[in-house]
């Protein structure tokens, strides 16, 4: 579809403060507008990453979750508010994101991501932004990331802490190289909302850098695990390498 002069003026005005950045520019803004992102989860991480990506003008955001908004979500899940209590999280998310930016497309996907439905979701998106709260769904995303060559921006939070990394097939280890299947499940984790905010903001930043190919792999969070330790406010970058024996990625051609 050819962009009209009116759309171009609106785009340049709305995104003026990022279009003036040499790393983005008018061309980069157009690319953002043509990109589809899956935000896998509308909780603490997905609330913040989706807001920043919508605000930045990512053209299509698919936001997936199967839960409804509960009162105990509100300390960190800033997409939702008291008026959203009881409604589907993705519906609440779509309302808020559309209020923020009505010029982009938001697709709410009120479903649990499974091995059965991930293929049809993956075929529609350019990048996965992890906002899940469990290992199994991350493993499903990781396998689809490898199968369809889709970058996977991992984030995880607990307490005052967070972890973030970009797993890019063919260029980096995969999620399962780094985070082995847990031997114990933590079902109800304590979390301070700002920890999710920090990790998800970094995920949004890295997503934009990946979409626009800003910087080198070293500049991006590739082959590095960022560890955010909120209690002593330290952020550390840990060097990663692929596991040659990884059962998920070791036989996938780059």
């Amino acid at each position: 579809m050819v962009e009209s002069d009116k759309q171009k003026i609106t785009r340049n005005r709305r995104y003026a403060r990022q279009v003036i950045l040499p790393q983005i520019g008018s061309e980069g803004q157009k690319i953002l507008g043509k990109t589809s992102v899956l935000i896998a989860g509308a909780g603490g991480l997905g609330s913040i990453s989706s807001l920043y990506l919508a605000a930045a003008g990512v053209g299509h955001i698919i936001i997936a979750d199967h839960d409804h908004v509960e009162e105990s979500n509100l300390n960190r899940q800033l997409l939702h508010s008291e008026v959203s209590l009881g409604i589907e999280k993705t519906k609440s998310a779509a309302i808020r994101l559309t209020e923020l930016n009505s010029s982009i497309k938001i697709t709410p996907l009120q479903t649990k991501m499974t091995r059965q439905n991930i293929d049809s979701i993956a075929k529609k998106v350019d990048i996965f932004v992890d906002a899940t709260d469990n290992y199994n769904t991350r493993q499903i995303l990781n396998r689809a990331s490898l199968k369809y060559n889709i970058p996977f921006v991992f984030g995880g939070v607990q307490g005052f802490d967070g972890l973030v990394s970009c797993f890019v097939p063919g260029r980096t280890p995969c999620f399962e190289c780094v985070i082995p299947c847990p031997k114990k499940e933590n079902n109800s984790l304590g979390i301070i909302g700002a920890a999710a905010g920090i990790a998800a903001s970094i995920q949004a930043m890295e997503t934009i850098k990946l979409i626009l190919n800003i910087g080198t792999g070293e500049d991006r969070l590739e082959n590095r695990l960022l560890r955010i330790s909120g209690l002593d406010m330290k952020i550390k970058s840990i060097k990663l390498e692929p596991d040659p024996e990884c059962t998920a990625c070791s036989d996938v051609d780059p």
């Binding site: 909780g43 603490g44 906002a131 995880g156 985070i179 984790l189 999710a196 560890r227």
Partner: peptide, 30 residues
């Protein structure tokens, strides 16, 4: 020393003098 160690290598990786080591409990909440 800011390098990730694969869990399968915990038995065979020897700690050296002045190493800086972090134990990280993986954060998998969202």
């Amino acid at each position: 020393n800011c390098k990730y160690i694969f869990p399968k290598n915990y038995k065979t990786t020897t700690i050296m003098e002045n190493d800086t080591i972090e134990f990280i409990n993986p954060n998998l909440g969202g």
